[in-house]
Every structure is written in structure tokens, then in C-alpha cells.
Write a protein that binds this DNA or RNA. Structure first.
Lengths: 211, 211
DNA sequence: AAATATACTTAACACCGTTAAGTTTCCAAA
DNA sequence: TTTGGAAACTTAACGGTGTTAAGTATATTT
């Protein structure tokens, strides 16, 4: 069955080409610039051909969204070398902010746009959001570790993780959706966000050595 | 000059009619359903007529966004009868979450969509976001009052306000953009958000009577 | 060689925001 | 009262969007 194997491989190649083209358009001018017709133009097929490889545009955006998580992982590789979970927690927040502000287009796909989540509905039967689950999981684990080592006060790990994630997400999303522009001077924005983050970690710190 | 006065009045009436129609479409199926053509259909004018009363669609969305802030104000009228600023702060958060979850379409206009902010660029020369400024201002004042009365630890009011706002905004926006659906059981979502909020206020509380 | 399955395209549907040019309506001055 | 011009409004179009039904080649199997 070498022939059907080769065919399968070719199919995957075109899938790849579609995603590459989408990514190129996406990186150049953000996701608003990703249209089925432009993708088709770039790979030199007709627009309808794209639909033979992907159900709809949402499915393509979902794949880009996944690549966003890969890119985020690049930011956090050295995180697991940090032994002190409270220090790690601080670094996690810092990296999250950094990734979001440096890759606003990816960030929107991952945490703001509805489209990728809509693709999820039809994609997996189980309908689980693996990327999100993993990311939140790592935060939970770190917070749990902080509690186990009495570095922060004990409490509902799920609720606290959600709250902390919400805070950094809130900062990034308000920033990239232009809600801070008119309220905070441009050059003070990032420092102020970091200040807010360290403030939270400070009130959290149960060790007593607050600065 | 009674005649030109009447003309001006009529002009305002059509402006009003356009906004009413937009609002109707918006309330029925969210902002995705608000299109220049549908607005025109509803007021029984041609699509281009709308452009004689509003520069573009962003300007209409900006006006709806302002109405959103009015609606939010309805949620918070009894806030200023609360004397204890820490209690008021808690209620503020609670109301914010409630408003956001009960009026997702408005919330998106106010704090997520870029369009209204783009209208702002061309609208005011000073380019200030009054609604946002006021809202954040009230939060700042309450936090300042908490600090003045030694209810919470002193710190940078601006950074702390931004952080707290970011947290509740993060919660609402993650929720209405379907990022919690796959991570938290639907019926536990709101309780968990409130739990996160009270947790924050608890670690903040400097009075020692933590529950 | 004929039938069938695969890959791909053409043409269209139903939308969208926006603009240029043309038409009608109305008011004021001659 | 007629006429000129401004104001109000419309038609038609441009260039885009996601998506689907139907048609055409190409390649594979019978």
C-alpha cells in the first residue's frame, strides 16, 4: 500500500502548507488578515480547496492557537529549574505578561477570540481544551506546592489559581485591547503591571519577609 | 430662527432612531448582529443615510458602549451608601462580576472590543476615555479610603487598582470568551469566581479578623 | 476501455463597511 | 411666484468576507 501511503503524505503536506500560509499572513498583520481567500492565494489553490483540508476557518484558527501555546512554552522552559515555588510563581506571572505583550496576536487567539473555542466544540468529542488545561494545571501545581511548603496561606487551590490567572490575563487583555492607553501613560504601563503583580505576591507571602 | 431649530431637532431625532435601532439589534443577538445595513433597514432609510449622522460604524458602537456604562451604573447605585470602604470594595467586585456575566454583549463593547476605542481616537481631540476613567477612579478612591483607614496595607494605589480591576475583568472576560467552560464545571463557575474575589479581599484585609 | 473515486475549480449566495455620484425635497432670495 | 441652491436622501458600485452546490479534470480500479 505504498501508493495510498504517499497520497496520505501528500495530503498532510498540503495541510501543512495551508497552516504555514495562515501563519505567515497571521504573523504579518494579525488574525484579521487571515482570510480563506488569502490563504488560498498564497498556496496557489482555489479558496474552496482549503475546505477539503479544514472544516472551516475556525479549525485553522484553532491550529494557529495551538502554535501559540507552543510559542508560550518557549518563554517558560527555564521555569521548572526554579525550586522555590513562590519564586517560580512570580516568574510565571512575569513570563505570562511578557509573552502576552510581545505576542498580542497569538494572545488574542489563545485567550480572547471565540473562534478557536468554537472549533473545539466540533473537533473533540470529549471537547476538552488540552492546552488551556495544561497551562492552568502548571499554575495550580505551583500554588499547591507553595501551600504545602507554607509559603502562602492555604486555601481553595482551584479558586486561587483561577483568580491569579484572571489577574494576569486581565492585565494583558486590557492592555492589548487599548483600555490602559487612556488611563496610564504608555511608558508606565508595563512597570505598573509588574508592580501590581509583585504587590499580589507580596500580600500572598506568608513568610513574613515582606519588602 | 424657529425653522432651523426644528431642523436641528429632527436631526437629533434620526440620530436617536439610529442608536435605538442599533441597540435593538444589539440586544437581540449581540454586536455581531449590528450592521450598517440592518440598522438602515430597521429605520427604513438607505444604508448610506446612516453615514450622514455617524462617521462610521465604530462611532455607533462607541455610543452603545457608553450606554453600557449607564447600564453598569444601575448595578452600582447603592454602592455609595456603604460607609466601610472595604465592604464597599467587596460589593464593587461582586457587582462588576454580576454585570459582566449578565450583560456579556455590553461587557464586550465596554472592555473587550477594539472598535469603541478606535472611535475615541477620532472623536475627542484630547482622546480621553471618560467612562473608563470614571469607573477606575471610583475603584481608586475606595482603595485609597481603605488605606487611609488602615483597612488594607498601604501601597501604590494606581498599581493596586489596576491589579484588582484586572482580576475581575480577567474573570469576566475569560468566562464570556468560553475559556472557563472546559476547565470548570458550569455550575461551579460563578461560585468559584466569587470565591477567588473574597480570597483576594481576605489576604488584603489588614485588620486581622480573617475568616 | 469503461466506470469510479479523488482532487480541484467555477460560479454563486448572502453578507459586510464604505464611497462617489445622482436625485429629490425644501427653503430663501429675486 | 418663480428660481437657485443647499440639504437630505438614494442608487450603484467597489472590494472585500465565509461558505456551498455543482461541474470538470485527473488518476485509479475494475
Amino acid at each position: 500500500m505504498g501508493i495510498s501511503e504517499r497520497k496520505e503524505k501528500q495530503k498532510q503536506e498540503i495541510r501543512r502548507a495551508i497552516l504555514d500560509a495562515s501563519m505567515k499572513l497571521f504573523m504579518e498583520q494579525g488574525f484579521e488578515n487571515v482570510s480563506m481567500r488569502k490563504i488560498a492565494d498564497l498556496i496557489e489553490y482555489s479558496p474552496t480547496t482549503v475546505y477539503l483540508y479544514f472544516k472551516d476557518k475556525n479549525e485553522i484558527l484553532f491550529n494557529l492557537h495551538e502554535m501559540g501555546f507552543q510559542k508560550m512554552a518557549e518563554y517558560t522552559t527555564d521555569l521548572w529549574t526554579i525550586k522555590n515555588p513562590l519564586v517560580r510563581l512570580a516568574k510565571m506571572g512575569e513570563y505570562y505578561l511578557q509573552f502576552g505583550l510581545e505576542n498580542p496576536a497569538f494572545y488574542e487567539l489563545m485567550f480572547i477570540l471565540k473562534a478557536p473555542m468554537e472549533a473545539l466544540e466540533g473537533l473533540n468529542e470529549k471537547c476538552e481544551w488540552r492546552s488551556g488545561d495544561q497551562t492552568l494545571g502548571r499554575l495550580k501545581d505551583t500554588i499547591q506546592e507553595c501551600m504545602d511548603k507554607n509559603l502562602i496561606e492555604k486555601g481553595d487551590v482551584n479558586a486561587i489559581s483561577l483568580a491569579i490567572w484572571s489577574m494576569v490575563h486581565g492585565m494583558v487583555s486590557l492592555a492589548i485591547r487599548d483600555r490602559f492607553d487612556k488611563l496610564v501613560p504608555r511608558d508606565q504601563m508595563v512597570p505598573m503591571m509588574n508592580k501590581g503583580l509583585t504587590w499580589l505576591l507580596n500580600v500572598l507571602d506568608a513568610s513574613g519577609n515582606k519588602t
